[in-house]
Design a binder for these strands. Structure first.
Lengths: 125, 125
DNA sequence: ATAACTAGACTACACTTGTAGGAAGGTGCT
DNA sequence: AGCACCTTCCTACAAGTGTAGTCTAGTTAT
């Protein structure tokens, strides 16, 4: 539930997703994971990791010449913050507006809708 | 339904919201509208408007020494694009995930939920 | 051991963004 | 007609971002 104070940029998010999925891991492993989905040079990924460490979003284990990185903030917290600022920017803070738009624009498959209804039903209980 | 190619920054969004609500209007009017909600200098707003014109997001009427600005892209299109890239960045493109998160985190009031259900019901018809 | 390689640290560089100042020309009041 | 002011244009500048290269010290293969 903590507020995450610092902004994580688009490229940094991709790095964080890897670390949230598995950690602690080395930079080399991060690079391996990202290689298929990005065209980034390993150097670029090192830079991104470095920035995330400086922002105190990632921590480092420096045991035995082998640097291992791990998240210092939870994915949930970041998602919440990011969603909040996005909603504020585009939808004036109204999740309702966003949903209305999505539902209206048929961006949802019937299965999506069905599942959503189930989710909502659960919440009502 | 057009793709909006260029990015609109946070500050620019605030300007665009004014123009989407009413247009064409002059820079002075935009400044008036934004004065209560921002602490921006008129200069800043002029800069933002200028950038939006350069990005071809705003158009200008230069009739009679009175410059009037108006949007060249629809709010809906921009919202859709912004939402898409946000969803991709944070939720791997899954609106479902976002909603699940919101519903789970009790960020929705019972009334929100009720309304959402109604929206969904409409779509099912 | 020595040459080659590698991981991390530091540096680079252009572009965007937030935030605004100064110059230049038109408009209105006196 | 002159002064003041507004409007637009151009310029500025630091921080953040995407993207990557160089330097240095440790690791590995021969």
């Amino acid at each position: 539930m903590n507020e995450v104070t610092c902004k994580i940029s688009d490229a940094e998010w991709q790095v964080m997703k890897v670390l949230w999925a598995e950690s602690p891991i080395t930079a080399t492993q991060v690079i391996e994971y990202l290689k298929p989905e990005t065209h980034w040079s390993p150097k670029t990924i090192h830079t991104l990791i470095g920035r995330l460490v400086k922002k105190q979003v990632l921590g480092v284990n420096k045991n035995s010449n082998l640097f291992q990185y791990y998240p210092l903030v939870s994915k949930d917290d970041c998602m919440r913050d990011e969603t909040k600022s996005f909603l504020h920017k585009v939808y004036d803070g109204s999740l309702h507006l966003l949903l209305a738009n999505f539902v209206k624009n048929e961006s949802l498959s019937p299965r999506d809708i069905e599942e959503l209804r189930n989710l909502l039903d659960e919440r009502i209980k």
